[in-house]
């Protein structure tokens, strides 16, 4: 029987050394047993490798940068939709999510484009600056943290935090500090790069483990695969990782998705201490770049997300293969200049 074809717009085609999840998501979708896909790549830069992967991406359009605002994004999507009849869009960048979340209703009602993303409340509540409160609210251990706005607050931290502790930026960066002097230096370094506020976080020693998971928006955990990084790049990204059997991590994902009614993909970054305690470090509100490992373990999360986006009810995955590894590799494609010219001049390829 011929499968139906779904037209899916996918962002995050930057399969570079610090990769976006777009290409792995597309690979997962192409392996769907439920439907065929036409993949419309949505790029921000002319050098995103996915643009030139013609066996994975059927056509690519450039999008305005997220900072251009929702009006510009909507106008561009309108144009793309007129050419491609999009059924689903899967945004994969943190920076663009705010806009897609805000536009989700308009995209559905005006164009019947389905975007399966968290609500704005879910998205905002898990921001780094709110995570400690978030954990308290949902009964999940988060390293004690405090948001500060001024370097003078660093001097009064000694009563609340023991050294070492971590100084974190609003969006990125974290420095472990062992003295007040180091803390002051770290405060200035991060504040100059990412602005205020600065987050002070208790340092929890242990092994970093991650979960990629999917929620249906009703409180059901549709799928979850825990992974331990085996080898990381100098940017801290997983170069290889292995699926592990860890019920406590699954329970944490389940609890979180149940109590927040999370809608869409997410990644939990967790520290597992020597005495088997689990602390949530971060929630990324989208699939991670290693989401294809879940497919390899028998849970095709992107496929399930598309089915839910199209309004289907999806039964939760019951199991996954433990001990499956992913090993990332890089690959030099040969690209003709005229392709670069087309995406640069016309914004399409």
């Amino acid at each position: 029987m011929k499968k139906r074809t779904i037209n899916i717009g996918v962002t995050g085609l930057n399969a570079i050394d610090s990769p976006g999840p777009g290409v792995p998501v597309i690979r997962a979708l192409r392996e769907s047993t439920a439907f065929d896909v036409r993949i419309i790549g949505l790029s921000y830069e002319a050098m995103e490798p996915g643009i030139y992967m013609h066996d994975l991406v059927d056509k690519t359009y450039q999008l305005p940068l997220p900072s251009a605002g929702q009006q510009a994004l909507l106008a561009r999507l309108e144009y793309i939709h007129a050419q491609e009849k999009l059924d689903v869009i899967i945004p994969n960048f943190d920076a663009e999510l705010f806009n897609f979340i805000q536009l989700a209703n308009v995209l559905k009602s005006n164009y019947n484009i389905n975007v399966f993303v968290p609500t704005l409340e879910q998205f905002e509540a898990r921001q780094k600056v709110n995570l400690y409160e978030y954990g308290k609210k949902h009964g999940i251990d988060v390293p004690k943290s405090k948001t500060i706005f001024s370097v003078k607050d660093v001097y009064s931290l000694e009563q609340e935090f023991e050294f070492p502790y971590v100084i974190k930026g609003k969006f990125y960066d974290a420095i472990i500090v062992y003295s007040t002097d180091q803390a002051v230096a770290a405060f200035h370094r991060i504040a100059s790069k990412w602005g205020l506020p600065i987050i002070i976080q208790e340092f929890v020693e242990g092994q970093e483990v991650n979960v990629t998971a999917l929620g249906d928006g009703q409180g059901n955990l549709i799928g979850a695969v825990p992974m331990r990084k085996q080898y990381i790049t100098d940017k801290g990204k997983a170069w290889s990782g292995i699926s592990i059997d860890d019920d406590k991590m699954l329970q944490m994902a389940k609890k979180l998705i149940q109590s927040t009614k999370w809608r869409g993909g997410l990644e939990l970054e967790i520290v597992r201490t020597d005495d088997e305690k689990y602390y949530l470090l971060e929630i990324n509100p989208r699939f991670p770049a290693w989401v294809y490992l879940a497919v390899g373990c028998g849970q095709n999360h992107p496929e399930a997300l598309v089915r839910m986006a199209m309004g289907e009810t999806v039964a939760p995955f019951e199991k996954y293969d433990v001990g499956k590894m992913f090993v990332r590799y890089s690959y030099d494609m040969i690209v003709n200049l005229n392709e670069f010219e087309k995406i640069s001049i016309n914004g399409e390829l």
Partner: peptide, 10 residues
């Protein structure tokens, strides 16, 4: 990283 007209503001 430099945007053409598709990347710029309204």
């Amino acid at each position: 990283g430099l945007m053409n007209k598709y990347g710029t503001r309204t």
